[in-house]
Write a protein that binds this DNA or RNA. Structure first.
Lengths: 346, 346
DNA sequence: TTGTATGCGTTATCAT
DNA sequence: ATGATAACGCATACAA
């Protein structure tokens, strides 16, 4: 492996001079400069990142801690993170926290000396490790919330989104709106439930526990919950699922039960995953720009890294948008056009 | 930041002893050992990865270079990579190659001194950077192929998969089977085309250029190609799309043109993305386990890292599987059950 | 069983 | 404008 010494020897200069040329620090004669660049290029010299960061104490790498999640969300958030990171000259090191008990703390230990900061997602509400993360490393919490406000955090505006969707359903004439809730101790789930209840309250409708079922954020959970709702003495006329997967499960259950959507039952979801617009009928949902979420998280983190000490902790949220398709019974504004960006493998 | 020196001072021993205890190298008295562990724990000491790798010349990090791709493939391959990497005590540093001209080479430079090896995906066929990658770093090519066989590579068994699907279509009685091809210079696209032609040849059918249209791997491309096929004087009775996105686009075109699927036109795709089973009718396709792809890539790389010199370059392929649903006109074997693993956001 | 000293590849400081 | 050298945090060969 060719080091700075090799370049220096070949050019008959000291390593200091080579370093100066390659980093543009300090004055070097034009001729020497030219010679060194030429040699470095010819030798294919590349500075050793580890060694460099040892002395600069900057790695230009950002750590990303994600829970063990599947699908579109995962890739979109990474896309957003990576794009912004690269624009600032940073790379991403990714680690799934892989359901280990210790959670974030262990993972953050493993990252020490390897990264300049961490974006961590830990949506489990009573994850205690969030309370005592050593703030030695700049950290941004994603879709999670810590007790106290010692940490930067970026979340989806779940509450407002859910509230808006419920309002929309009610404006369509629905008085009995059920919710299929997300995983019990999940932050996003809790917030969406809160938004749902506020939405009802706004319209003077009293929430009923019987209309609040749990679906665990999975398709199967949504399916089961929908079935249960159909069995109710007083059926709801609309179902708001706390994510699209559950809404899709509900759609299956309704179809198999011969219940017309939206005719006999309106359905809405949350997230706007790509599948949503392909459902039959196309699913009304609350869109959140996952990509933006990632981008803004990196921006917050970079901010925390550069300001370091005099940094004021912030809490931010990314906005959501109600997307009306046919499943809720309103006029469908959107019809599925062949997407030009969606290609799966390539 | 607490270093090994801090621990040593606190424990009244030399840094060497601390190092020995923490790495289990060399003999240390039980008592000292206990004391050091206790102190290291209390001080929350964590070895500095960069410094350590400087001397051990191992980072325990694997680099991953991916093209700018969307969706499910991206997340699945990362999942496979990460799972296997973590099982071997490695982390992943991910970089999307972001359409820069220089391609792999630049990215690999940036990784020097940061990783022990690289998994790179560069499906563009005439990417010249693939010919002269400096083999200073263990490298596994994913879904790509290099001139010569100097490099390890892992690809999807595109050809066999396409061939099997075409055979299936023909067994259903189709004599005129069209293909919607993928991006012109894409490796997977080229192989799937080859498999298609072989499949025809197996049945003694002569390939017709008029039945080989290009869809660029996008949904819109599939849509346009299907329309064009419908305009043909001698229409095909079956369409094999080189990926699911294009098949889905074709499905839209057929529906809008009032062509019954599979009655008047059979359709099949490739990849088995999650959307596939939700189509109307559910899409027959060729399944490939992306997750496995990632897992095996890491295994190959780790292999190359440990064997280093006496390492023989290998080319491997991951198998595919024909998945019969309704869109091709055979009896549908599979019906969409509510998936228990598919949850989008959480 | 433990300590001392060297070096990993780089940047930064201080000379010259 | 350039060179010598210390320092970054750690592991390890060698000495004790």
């Amino acid at each position: 492996m060719v080091t700075i010494k090799d370049v220096a020897r070949e050019a008959n200069v000291s390593v200091a001079t080579v370093s100066r040329v390659l980093n543009g620090s300090g004055p070097v004669s034009a001729e020497t400069q030219r010679r060194i660049r030429e040699i470095a290029g010819r030798l294919r010299y590349v500075p050793h990142g580890g060694a460099r960061s040892l002395i600069t104490s900057r790695t230009e790498i950002l750590g990303v801690l994600l829970p063990d999640l599947y699908g579109e969300f995962f890739s979109e958030v990474i896309r957003g993170l990576d794009e912004t990171a690269q624009r600032h000259g940073f790379h991403l090191i990714i680690s799934r926290s892989h359901a280990s008990k210790h959670g974030i703390e262990t993972a953050m230990r493993a990252m020490r000396g390897r990264v300049d900061g961490v974006v961590a997602m830990s949506p489990d509400l009573d994850e205690e490790s969030l309370t005592n993360v050593p703030s030695t490393l700049p950290l941004v919490l994603l879709c999670s919330v810590s007790r106290g406000d010692a940490l930067d955090s970026l979340t989806i505006d779940n509450c407002r989104g859910a509230r808006a969707m419920v309002k929309h359903l009610i404006s369509l004439g629905h008085q009995r709106v059920a919710i299929i809730k997300g995983a019990p101790r999940n932050y996003d789930a809790a917030e969406r439930l809160r938004g749902y209840r506020l939405g009802l309250k706004d319209a003077g409708i009293k929430p009923e526990r019987a209309l609040e079922l749990e679906g665990g954020f999975t398709e199967a959970g949504g399916y089961a919950a929908a079935l249960q709702l159909l069995g109710l003495a007083e059926r709801p006329t609309a179902i708001f699922a706390a994510n699209d997967s559950m809404a899709i499960g509900a759609l299956s259950a309704l179809r198999e039960s011969g219940v017309q959507v939206p005719g006999q039952m309106a359905v809405a979801g949350f997230d706007d995953i790509p599948l949503a617009r392909y459902m039959d009928p196309p699913l009304s949902t609350v869109r959140v720009s996952i990509c933006d979420l990632g981008a803004r998280a990196v921006e917050m983190l970079l901010n925390g890294i550069t300001s370091k000490n005099e940094h004021r902790r912030k809490r931010e949220q990314v906005a959501t948008e109600v997307v009306i398709r046919s499943s809720c019974g309103a006029q469908s504004v959107e019809r599925p056009p062949p997407s030009t960006t969606n290609s799966d493998l390539h």
